[in-house]
Design a protein around this nucleic acid. Sequence first.
DNA 1: AATGGCGCCTGAACGC
DNA 2: TGCGTTCAGGCGCCAT
Length: 273
Amino acid sequence: MPELPEVEVTRKGIAAPLLGARVLEVRLGKPLRRPLGCPPGALAGATLGEITRRGKYLWLPLAAPDGGLLVHLGMSGSLALLERAGEPGPHDHFDLVTDRGTLRLNDPRRFGAVSWSASLDDAPAAALLARLGPEPFDAALTPQSFHAALRARRGALKTVLMAGQAVVGAGNIYACEALFQAGIHPALRADALSRPRAARLLAALRATFARALDVGGSTLRDFSDAHGVNGAYQAEAAVYGRAGQDCRRCGGRIRRIVQAQRSTYFCPSCQRR
DNA sequence: AATGGCGCCTGAACGC
DNA sequence: TGCGTTCAGGCGCCAT
C-alpha cells in the first residue's frame, strides 16, 4: 500500500509523540514476513529515540536495552498510534505498547515486517538497507548521477525505477505517474535514456513525491495516516488504474501493459521511447 | 553483477 | 447466491 510519501507521512505522524516514550510491552499477532528477531519481552523498559526513514523502511531506535526496530509496511500495512488500543483485530500483528500509546501495525497480507537489530549497522537491518539507492531528495542525487545510474541498467525504465537502486521510494503508482509526467515510455531501456530526459524524469519523480507529501499521502486510495484518519482519495492519478480511459492531456487512450509481473499504465502518445 | 522469475498472504472485485 | 479467477500500492531470494 505505501510508497515513500506514505511512509514519510506515517513517520511524521508518530515521530514526535513517540520520542522519549517508554516501551511497556510488545504483542505479536500472526507471523509477518520475517521474525521479530528477539523475545518480545526483551524490549520492555526501552526508551524510543527519534524515528527515521530510509526508503520505505522506518527505523525505531531503542535505548536501554539498546537496539531498534526496522519496520516495513509491505503492500497492505499501516501504522496507527492509538491512545487506548482495544483488543487487536484479525489483521493487527504487532503492538508496541508504550506509556504514550500503542503503535499498532495492521497488515492484512502480512508482507510487512518488524525486525529487531542491535543497530543500523548490524544484521538484519544493515543487509536490508545496504541495497538501497539514494533518497529522492538527497542533494547528492543530481541529474548527472541519476543518468549515470540509469546507464548501468539494461532493464525497462519503469522496472528500474521500482528496483530502488537508481533512486528509492517509487512503487508501482508513482513510477507510472512520474514517467507520464516526464513524457517517457515505461518500456524504454534505462541505459537508452538521454541525459536531458534523465533530468526530466528525476524532476518529475521529485514533483510527484512532493505533491503526495503535500496532501499527506492521500493520493493513495485507502491510505490512512498514523491517526487512522484520511483515505481521502485525491482521484488525481493521470494514468495509474485508468486503462481504457481518456488521457487528460491529449485525449488518447490510456493503456495497461505488464512489466515484471506488475501492471504499468501509460499514454502511448504522450510517452515516447 | 545484473536480471528475470517466483513466493509470500488475504481480500475485493468481477464473471459465470 | 455461490463459486472460481484475477488483481492488488513490495520486496527478498534464487538461479542464471
